[in-house]
């Protein structure tokens, strides 16, 4: 009780400061709920403060490296060579996470799915696309944005950013206001319009992962549940040795994903919005 009260007073204090127009505080507030450790790390890095961040934010590049930041590279070309692989990824994710398959299109829930190049990258030119992009589709999922609008919008912290960069959810706290769905510029989130068990075969569900209740939002969680067990994300696993998907720490210069990013031209979805997606595409 007392702790809650103190917390409240602290927040009230910060808000008052914000009201007084302290731009730094406002900036901190609107960048979302960074865990304290990451915040401290940001603060002690001299010369890489707010200024630098502001100057790069507009180009949608990475923020200051600090700690782990998980990311993913999707090689669309490799998926084009082997169209069955994308379906395998979707199936792997949806069965591992008990994502229901509901008959009503309006109630649809999806964590990872295929969409046209123009749908995934509306800001990129798609006038006379090359044959590959014309014919094939792109796998999309939550981008685990480094500056996530969904986290900023959530009124209960049910959507939050982990210190490893993963944007995760607490299904037990979510009130189902769907503000995060309006805020996400990528359409990455789904809502349980009905009991998800209506679309699950309860004998075949993965008992290691919870099913959700109706009335809450869900989305790709970067397999936050599998990583501590030393497993790769289920979708990445489904691509086998093809390297069509590479997952790893974007802040570790020696990681495989950094190698891939160094050697290939990659793009992010809607970089102009300043969300700083952690999912990159090779097209």
């Amino acid at each position: 009780m007392d702790k809650k009260r103190r917390e409240f007073l602290k927040i009230a204090g910060i808000s008052t400061l914000a009201g007084l127009g302290a731009p730094a505080v406002v900036d901190r507030l609107i960048t979302g709920s960074y865990p304290l450790a990451a915040r401290a790390a940001r603060e002690v890095t001299p010369g890489e403060g707010a200024g630098d961040q502001a100057s790069t934010a507009g180009h949608g590049s990475d923020t200051v490296p600090s700690g782990t930041r998980y990311g993913m590279v999707i090689d669309v070309r490799k998926f084009n060579e082997n169209p069955a692989m994308a379906e395998a990824c979707i199936k792997a994710c949806h069965s591992v996470h008990n994502v229901p398959d509901l008959a009503e299109k309006n109630n649809e829930i999806k964590w990872i799915w295929l969409t046209g190049y123009g749908n995934a990258f509306p800001d990129h030119s798609h006038y006379h696309k090359d044959e590959n992009l014309e014919k094939n589709q792109v796998l999309v999922l939550c981008n685990h944005c480094d500056s996530p609008p969904c986290v900023r919008a959530c009124p209960t912290k049910a959507t939050f950013k982990n210190k490893d960069g993963i944007v995760a959810m607490d299904y037990h706290r979510c009130i189902g206001c769907r503000f995060c769905m309006a805020a996400c510029p990528y359409g990455a989130r789904s809502f349980n319009w009905q009991d998800p068990r209506n679309g699950l075969d309860m004998n075949k569900i993965n008992r290691e992962f919870p099913t959700r209740m109706r009335g809450v939002v869900e989305k790709c969680n970067f397999c936050v549940d599998r990583l501590p067990r030393g497993l790769q994300p289920a979708c990445v696993e489904a691509t086998g040795a093809s390297k069509a998907m590479v997952f790893g720490d974007l802040n570790d210069p020696n990681s495989e994903i950094r190698q891939v990013l160094k050697e290939n031209f990659t793009i992010q979805r809607k970089p102009a919005l300043g969300t700083q997606p952690s999912v990159f595409f090779i097209v």
Partner: peptide
């Protein structure tokens, strides 16, 4: 609200960065 009984979470977990 999808979970109307949890409406008070907005007060229990005050989040000043949310306009809601």
């Amino acid at each position: 609200l999808g979970q109307p009984l949890r409406a008070l979470n907005v007060l229990l977990h005050p989040t000043p960065n949310s306009m809601l």
